[in-house]
């Protein structure tokens, strides 16, 4: 742990704390003794080979996956079986998926207002104003009345980001947000994410976009076989990887 991280871990400034978290799928041990502390405003990129448990780990943070042992504390709320805690965490944590998962039967605007209206109990008009605000921010306000099927992949992913932001989350999780996109669409989504990062949003991002990691991340976490192998500031991580496994991974993804 670097000194910079230690300084960040002042009580009250911690956004997410994961302690000794383990998860099994049947006999398969997916996550082993995960320890991770994320400070408020910190931007973390999680990378690693496929099947290393990176998606599973961030999905545990908003309880889309259940962990079997250890603690996860999000914004002071511990994730247990208590539905109230789960609701509280989910309303604080936004999530963007690889396949966007927009609701195809609702317009872009309705996609963005559904949760604010039914979960936050915000008046429809106000919810629509908020939605338009964030749609403008992701630069697609003119598509508000279309259906998701009428938009390109990049536009859909930006809508998904806007939909999450409409709940005014304090933490955003990104699960390979650009993996299903064409190269030119990747850029428009990454630009949106960089903008978000610059505003000080706490972000955990599973991605293979190393350029993004170098540009915005405070820390890069490398996972392999369900364990956190190495974590470091991006500069050191890329220039001076500690473990053999990290070196091999970096040589493979940066090699071409």
């Amino acid at each position: 742990m670097t000194t910079a991280q230690k300084q960040l871990q002042i009580p009250g400034e911690i956004a997410i704390e994961i302690r000794k978290m383990n998860k099994w799928y049947g006999q398969f041990h997916v996550l082993r003794d995960i320890d991770l502390t994320v400070a408020r405003g910190e931007r973390i990129v999680i990378c690693g080979p496929s099947g290393s448990g990176k998606s599973t780990m961030i999905r545990c943070i908003n309880r889309l996956e259940e962990h079997q042992s250890g603690d996860i504390i999000v914004d002071g709320t511990e994730l247990t079986n208590d539905l109230k805690n789960i609701d509280k965490v989910r309303s604080e944590v936004g999530m963007v998926f690889q396949h966007f998962n927009l609701f195809p039967h609702l317009t872009i605007l309705e996609n963005c207002t559904l949760a604010p209206i039914w979960v936050r109990k915000i008046p429809k008009k106000q919810a629509e104003e908020t939605a338009m605000h964030f749609l403008t921010k992701v630069k697609i306000p003119d598509q508000a009345l279309k259906y998701p099927g009428q938009l390109s992949g990049g536009q859909q992913q930006r809508v998904a980001i806007a939909r999450s932001l409409c709940m005014r989350p304090r933490i955003m999780l990104f699960d390979e947000p650009t993996s299903a996109l064409d190269p030119e669409m990747i850029k428009e989504v990454l630009d949106t994410m960089i903008e978000l990062a610059e505003e000080g949003m706490t972000m955990l991002c599973v991605t293979h976009e190393m350029g993004f990691a170098q540009a915005v991340a405070n820390r890069v976490v490398f996972m392999d076989q369900g364990q956190i192998v190495e974590q470091n500031a991006p500069k050191e991580f890329f220039s001076n990887p500690q473990s053999e496994r990290t070196k091999l991974f970096l040589s493979q993804i940066l090699g071409h």
């Binding site: 908003n62 998926f97 039967h105 559904l114 709940m167």
Partner: peptide
């Protein structure tokens, strides 16, 4: 209806009953 739909609804904080009514059943 793909699992992603109910996951997205859950991630937005919708309870399973609401998810069924507002997201899954209409589709």
């Amino acid at each position: 209806i793909s699992r992603g739909q109910s996951e997205a609804a859950a991630a937005l904080g919708l309870r399973p009953g609401r998810t069924m009514k507002l997201v899954i059943l209409p589709q």
